[in-house]
């Protein structure tokens, strides 16, 4: 295996191997990647993403869903929806995959220390938040109440079930999961994630909120957080736009004056509030 260009070339994929494939739900899976023998891994921050390249099929931005404390294994969780992610879903242990990154802004893990932390996730939006959860759990004593509010489509679509259970049991993570629809087998909440916000205990005046999910869900979530008294400067959201390069060259991810790839994907809500209210921006 050769890699001719330097690792700093933002344009060339670096060779990685699929170390493990984990099916999460009917349409989501997690890939654990390791660098090719002899290649170094790179550190990343919670909230950042990589451009993942499947030979000849294409390249897509995928948030890192693994533990920033274990950078030697690069973990991505994604849903099979397009040609590239479907191709990725067919990869097996030992297969090669190209990686460019890490790109983008991180969740404010350090800045949140000393505060309550409220994570609000919708659907696959839990994946980009998981690295932040890892870091907060690793320094659990540095934070006040830590709450995860998580909305999924159905009980079958809930990601990282076992891990959430462990964190709840061992690290005092308060987890509230709600689904949009369910049958009798589901003993948990049914309803939208915003419904939970007024009902969980946290101190709104000393809370940092990190929100990731579909844009509509994030807008309503922020409204509820604001109603609860959380300061908008303490609310952070992760946005999604089309990306071809990840480094601000291709122009695709622009949202008004912001490049989601390099100014985001994690933004303080205040910085994008007006943009989120412009249709088709």
């Amino acid at each position: 295996m050769t890699l001719a260009a330097g690792a700093n070339d933002p344009i060339l994929p670096r060779p990685y191997r699929v170390h493990r494939v984990q099916k999460e739900t009917s349409d989501t899976f997690t890939l654990e990647l390791r660098p090719e023998a002899g290649q170094a891994s790179f550190p990343f921050a919670a909230g950042q993403f990589n451009m993942l390249y499947v030979l000849g099929v294409g390249e897509v931005p995928i948030s890192i869903s693994g533990d920033p404390g274990l950078p030697q294994s690069l973990v991505h969780t994604t849903r099979s929806v397009g040609a590239v992610t479907k191709g990725m879903g067919r990869l097996q242990r030992g297969d090669a995959i190209g990686v460019r990154g890490p790109f983008g802004t991180p969740w404010p893990i350090e800045a949140a220390a000393g505060n309550d932390v409220v994570f609000v996730a919708g659907g696959i939006g839990l994946a980009p938040l998981r690295p932040a959860l890892y870091q907060v759990m690793a320094r659990r004593e540095a934070y006040g109440r830590v709450v995860l509010l998580y909305g999924a489509r159905t009980p079958e679509d809930i990601l990282f079930r076992r891990q959430l259970k462990e964190w709840r049991a061992d690290f005092d993570l308060e987890v509230h999961v709600t689904v949009d629809r369910a049958t009798r087998d589901w003993r948990g909440n049914v309803g939208v994630v915003t419904h939970l916000i007024p009902r969980v205990p946290f101190d709104p005046y000393h809370t940092v909120a990190m929100v990731c999910g579909p844009e509509v869900m994030m807008r309503y979530t922020v409204m509820e957080l604001e109603r609860r008294g959380v300061q908008l400067e303490d609310v952070h959201v992760s946005l999604e736009r089309n990306m071809k390069c990840g480094v601000g060259f291709c122009g695709h991810c622009q949202m008004g004056p912001k490049f989601v790839c390099k100014d985001g994907p994690v933004f303080p809500f205040e910085k994008v509030r007006d943009l989120l209210n412009v249709r088709e921006v």
């Binding site: 295996m1 060339l12 994929p13 191997r17 030979l55 090669a96």
Partner: peptide, 16 residues
């Protein structure tokens, strides 16, 4: 043309 890539065993090589 940004790069060429070719399959090598289970892996692939990228050549600018």
């Amino acid at each position: 043309l940004r790069f060429r890539a070719s399959r090598e065993g289970h892996g692939f090589a990228v050549e600018p």
